[in-house]
Design a binder for these strands. Structure first.
Length: 619
DNA sequence: GCTTGATCGA
């Protein structure tokens, strides 16, 4: 402990005040605090208490500051500065309602909030997700006349942006006499968070000046609403104006991961290697995720291995990556290594590791993690965990047990869990059980059933029950759930080509269909058994559309074979589960054309080589 | 003496 640089005889109000003004270390603050109490200096010199509170706040001892503030500062009311700093300290904590509580107390105690108070408390409202509070405080700011302050106005725009209240955000922006780059950026953010990218781009284009954060807001907006190609286009556009920062690199890597755009992802990796001096854990996490999702689990591992001090995020990304590659044992090994390093898993880590268990059939290990997650790490199972666990049981064939778990969930079930269960029915070709579940759901009146209908339709299709398929599709049409219908895409020479349902939009669609016919003829020659779900161009118009709609990856693979050379792998991405027929077809193609084909669907990777598929657990 | 905008993993 550092002793006080004062002799006992020198201790008085003035010397202590001087000491406190130098922001001493916490050990000295405590000694001074003790002296103030023992020498009864507090009652006559209230300013000493105020400086003491400031010192505690400065040394991040919020609790000590709060005790002093509550017990020694009831009257006369504390100065505005003290209220502000207390509010600010709490606003740094996540999910704390204290800033607003303190603000209420301040008003009750006749305190005079100023521009700083409003800035802190409005920012807290945004973080706390309390739009009503925000509106009330907005009103108070108008009344008090502080609204004409740039910082207060900006924090208001940002608050309305956080709630995607674009009209309110624009209202504040429009009333301002002078907008800064912060004001403009917050307005772009408001549109982006509201999913209105057209307006976001419009505002962005009008900005008198932009910086890296402005670009980040726009690009992250595109990533959030799944428009990854545009996100990457703007990311490249950013380079002529400013240097990309950590946040935008993370966003761009996420876009690459979602697109399966390995070439662009590698490019960003080399950019990071040569331009970023500081190791950023977030970027490492994003790189691992990108490589894993683009099919290069080895590269993901290499990035992970090079991180000197790994955190939970790094581990989580790596564990999730191994899981989607079907490397469940390895995921569990890494999870145990992480625990041995005294790192505490979060809810997403658990999702990753449970996923790994379910793809590798590790029922025992998965069950043990699921049932002990709350006790061991204080993680209350969320809907996602139930989804993983139901998936794990279902894939392993314990359909009834899985159904029981799904029904007994303490939280309201949703589409993720039921989808996992229906998916299991599909794996085990158990239509009867699936229909039982659907009947159960009909009674519950599930609102978000679009994903379920797609699965049910695919389930019927894989069994050739076309009358039922068209019935479900009709219901889907009525409920407007068509946006969940599958699409596949492929990266060729750095450009991503997308194939949607019954696609006729691709400029080369006729060549692609020709190629597909040729492929089908060749694989049939080596014994590939055709079934009813084939893309056969001899079918009627309607049937053909139906068949193509179910197998967009067939178009992607044909395009891939047209545009890549033998000896290279073909990587196809799909936003839904790959179907049984495609599995058989891709095995045949990998043999006939002697190519490695990697398909990533919503749940995992499937590698086809020499007529075999890496997924043993699939069908 | 104190202020404002952005990031990922299922």
């Amino acid at each position: 402990m550092q002793p006080l640089p004062l002799a006992f005889s020198q201790i008085n109000g003035r010397s202590i005040s001087q000491l406190l003004s130098k922001r001493p270390p916490i050990s000295q603050i405590k000694q001074i605090h003790a002296q103030i109490i023992t020498q009864s200096l507090a009652s006559s010199r209230l300013f000493l208490i105020d400086s003491l509170i400031l010192c505690y706040l400065h040394s991040k001892n919020l609790n000590s500051a709060r005790i002093l503030f509550d017990e020694c500062r009831p009257s006369p009311p504390p100065p505005t500065l003290l209220w502000n700093l207390m509010i600010r300290a709490y606003s740094k904590l996540q999910y704390s309602s204290e800033p607003i509580n303190l603000f209420r107390r301040m008003i009750a105690a006749q305190g005079k909030p100023d521009k700083y108070t409003f800035t802190f408390v409005i920012t807290s409202c945004a973080r706390q997700a309390s739009v009503v509070c925000g509106q009330v405080i907005h009103g108070m700011a108008v009344k008090s006349g502080t609204l004409l302050n740039l910082y207060v106005d900006n924090s208001l725009i940002s608050m309305y942006a956080a709630f995607a209240r674009v009209d309110d955000a624009y209202g504040v922006f429009d009333e301002m006499s002078d907008q800064s780059v912060f004001s403009w950026t917050s307005l772009v953010s408001a549109y982006a968070k509201n999913g209105d990218m057209r307006r976001a781009v419009e505002v962005f284009a009008k900005m008198p000046a932009r910086n890296d954060v402005s670009w980040t807001v726009l690009i992250s907006g595109f990533v959030r609403c799944g428009r990854h190609t545009e996100a990457l286009r703007y990311f490249h556009g950013m380079f002529c104006e400013c240097k990309p920062n950590e946040a935008v690199l993370v966003c761009a890597l996420s876009a690459c991961a979602n697109l399966g755009s390995l070439d662009q992802g590698k490019w960003i990796h080399s950019y990071v290697d040569s331009n970023c001096t500081l190791e950023s854990s977030n970027i490492m996490t994003a790189l691992i995720d990108m490589y894993a999702k683009c099919g290069s689990i080895d590269c993901a591992y290499r990035v992970f291995d090079k991180i000197p001090r790994r955190d939970v995020q790094n581990y989580t990304s790596m564990i999730s990556g191994l899981s989607i590659h079907g490397l469940g044992e390895e995921a569990i090994r890494l999870f145990q290594q992480m625990l041995a390093e005294k790192l505490r898993p979060n809810d997403i880590t658990i999702v990753g590791v449970l996923n790994g268990c379910s793809h590798s059939g590790l029922v025992q290990q998965g069950s043990s993690i699921f049932y002990s997650m709350e006790n061991l790490w204080g993680i209350v199972p969320k809907i996602e965990h139930y989804g993983c666990y139901v998936d794990l049981l279902g894939r392993a064939g314990y359909l009834a047990k899985a159904f029981g778990i799904a029904k007994s969930m303490p939280i309201n079930g949703d589409v993720i869990v039921w989808r996992a269960l229906l998916s299991a029915c599909r794996i085990h070709c158990n239509v009867g059980f699936a229909e039982r579940i659907i009947n159960y759901l009909e009674q519950l009146d599930c609102r978000s059933r679009s994903g379920i209908n797609v699965l049910l339709s695919n389930l019927y299709a894989s069994l050739g029950k076309w009358d039922k398929v068209s019935l479900v599709r009709k219901i889907m049409g009525k409920r407007n759930s068509s946006r969940d219908i599958g699409c596949s895409w492929i990266e060729v020479n750095g450009a991503v080509h997308e194939f949607r349902v019954a696609d006729v939009l691709h400029p080369q669609i006729y060549e692609i269909q020709e190629k597909l016919s040729e492929i089908l003829k060749r694989v049939v020659l080596v014994g590939y058994a055709a079934d009813a779900t084939h893309v056969s161009f001899d079918l009627s118009e309607e049937d053909r559309e139906q068949a193509v709609a179910l197998h967009s990856e067939k178009l992607a693979i044909a395009f891939g074979l047209m545009n890549t050379v033998p000896g290279t792998s073909i990587r196809i991405m799909k936003n839904l589960r790959t179907c049984e027929d495609c599995h058989t077809l891709l095995k045949a193609i990998s043999k006939v054309y002697d190519r490695e084909i990697i398909v990533r669907d919503r749940s995992r990777f499937h590698t086809f080589k020499e007529g075999k598929c890496s997924c043993k657990d699939y069908w």
